[in-house]
Design a protein around this nucleic acid. Structure first.
Length: 466
RNA sequence: GCUCCCUUCGUCUAGAGGCCUAGGACAUGGCCCUCUCAAGGCCAGUACACGGGUUCGAAUCCCGUAGGGAGCGCCA
């Protein structure tokens, strides 16, 4: 049997990391078992669904590399099919028209609540044979009155529900449009879904869906309900942290494989391993190993995981991302060797590609502005003297390379009888404008002879200006 | 209110009755390395929600309690 999983987001809010994690689990499960992964957009609520949210789902999945084998399907385009199944259920006596007014329903509900009962429809229209004039009825599913439904959940184990706890849910509104639980059932059946992996907020819906699936003659799929992701504070994920469009992470300079790596570790692990490539995940992941408890989103660890991936990713790949991040800062460059050199020097100094771009400006611009504090600390007195020696030594350097620059620095340090730091820091401030950069020999080599000499001259001027 | 779900360091987790005086990772503090900042290395502190059982022995099994979450819509 081919495994078929699906990711079925509703475009009523922007796709965030919670949704991405369930998508990832579904995708991994399908890939791991050589199955198929379907993308289905659940947009039956035309009021709240937005085109922007749909676009974020599409773009986000693509950015993350969670490719689908079928779809995207849109529920809004399948209404004919839903109407057909609705009619079938009606004909077979498995569903019925309900003419109860909202007021009547409200009254029923209040009475039940007053009796400390769970509010539920009492099925009073089940026996009705004649329509009520002037009332557009809804359609309700005839749920079994007794017995139990056992959800054999892949992460929770068997969960038992009493049919007596369930009621006859509305599967079509009075305007004829089908409702969520019903559409899911028809789709999962039509698309031959074998494994439904979704958030555990749907666990309570599952027995109803199983009953409906059986009513339309489909063997229910296997289910795996995964816990949700909490905010760093342990409360529900908020806009402040995490509950933002997944594309926000791209803008912030996170690598897609790092985001996925971080997310998969929320509820899943493989021994003591923290860093995984996607290929490893496909090989190692199993939905039955996923934990039951909800977990909190930890931005610090995401940052660490991101840097770990940055330190191991191929240079040309990161260079491309750095170029895009620089573009956002208004810096255009096509200098591939420079970009790769900067990545090599900066990737263990930045936690995100955005941060790398921000701290690498001096590699790509013509001049730098010397930071006052750094200048005062390293370019005064002795520092200014060093600048002169540096200017002369580097000007005379024939082998313009990190090793060559290094040779000049050590010679000056030895000659002056000082540590390398006394020579390196003034040069660093002169070349970068700040007291922080990759090793100064490599930095100078990347910036290039001409600009280095020019910056040294300007630093000399700076030091001479009171 | 009713039904269902969950509970190991601050956080993510390992742990399927003895290997646990509970392991790893992030974060935190200290030290080392060092031209800066990082990265890296070493060290430190911090956890089995609580109470009963079962057992020679329980983080692991059972029962309660407490706390948290979800669902109970002509929302998805």
């Amino acid at each position: 049997m081919t495994i078929v999983t699906r990711f079925a987001p509703s475009p009523t809010g922007l796709l965030h990391i919670g949704g991405v994690r369930t998508a990832l689990f579904s995708w991994l499960y399908a890939r791991r078992h050589g199955g198929r992964f379907i993308l289905r957009v659940e947009d039956t609520d035309r009021e709240r669904s937005t085109a922007e949210a749909v676009q974020v789902i599409l773009d986000g999945m693509q950015w993350l590399g969670l490719s689908h084998d079928e779809g995207p399907y849109y529920q809004s385009r399948r209404f004919d099919r839903y109407a057909q199944v609705l009619q079938q259920l009606l004909t077979e006596g498995k569903a019925y028209h309900c003419y109860c007014s909202k007021e009547e329903l409200e009254e029923m509900r209040n009475a039940q609540l007053a009796r400390k009962e769970k509010p539920r429809y009492d099925g009073r229209c089940r026996q009705r044979t004649a329509p009520v004039p002037g009332v557009q009825p809804v359609i309700r599913f005839k749920n079994p009155l007794d017995g139990e439904v056992i959800v054999e959940d892949l992460v929770h184990g068997p969960v038992v529900f009493q049919n007596a706890e369930l009621d006859d849910l509305i599967i079509a509104r009075s305007d004829g449009t089908p409702t969520y639980n019903f559409c899911v059932v028809v789709d999962d059946s039509d698309m031959n879904i074998t494994h439904v992996i979704r958030g555990d907020d749907h666990l309570n819906n599952t027995p109803r869906q199983i009953n409906m699936l059986r009513a339309i003659g489909f063997t229910p799929p296997a289910y795996a309900h995964v816990a949700m992701i909490l905010g760093p504070d342990g409360a529900k994920l908020s806009k402040r942290h995490g509950a933002v469009s997944v594309l926000h992470y791209r803008e912030e300079g996170y690598l897609p494989e790092a985001l996925l790596n971080y997310l998969v570790r929320l509820g899943w692990s493989h021994g003591d391993q923290e860093i995984f490539t996607l290929a490893e995940l496909v090989r190692l992941f199993d939905i039955t190993d996923v934990n039951k408890a909800a977990s909190a989103f930890n931005p610090d660890k995401l940052l660490w995981v991101n840097q770990q991936h940055m330190m191991h990713a191929p240079l040309p790949y990161l260079a491309g991302i750095l170029r895009e991040q620089l573009q956002r800062l208004g810096i255009e460059t096509q200098d591939q060797p420079l970009l790769e050199g900067v990545v090599a020097g900066q990737r263990e100094r930045a936690k995100t590609m955005k941060e790398m771009a921000e701290s690498s400006r001096y590699f790509f611009v013509a001049d730098v502005v010397i930071d006052d504090k750094a200048g005062r600390k390293h370019l005064g007195g002795e520092g200014a003297a060093m600048l002169g020696r540096l200017r002369a030594g580097l000007d005379a350097l024939s082998d313009w390379s990190a090793a060559g620059v290094h040779g000049v620095l050590t010679a000056i340090a030895t000659d002056a009888g000082v540590g390398l730091g006394k020579v390196a820091q003034p040069l660093r401030v002169a070349l970068t404008g700040t007291a922080v950069s990759p090793p100064i020999d490599a930095t100078a080599a990347l910036i290039g002879r001409e600009r280095v000499l020019g910056r040294l001259d300007r630093a000399l001027q700076w030091a001479a200006t009171p």
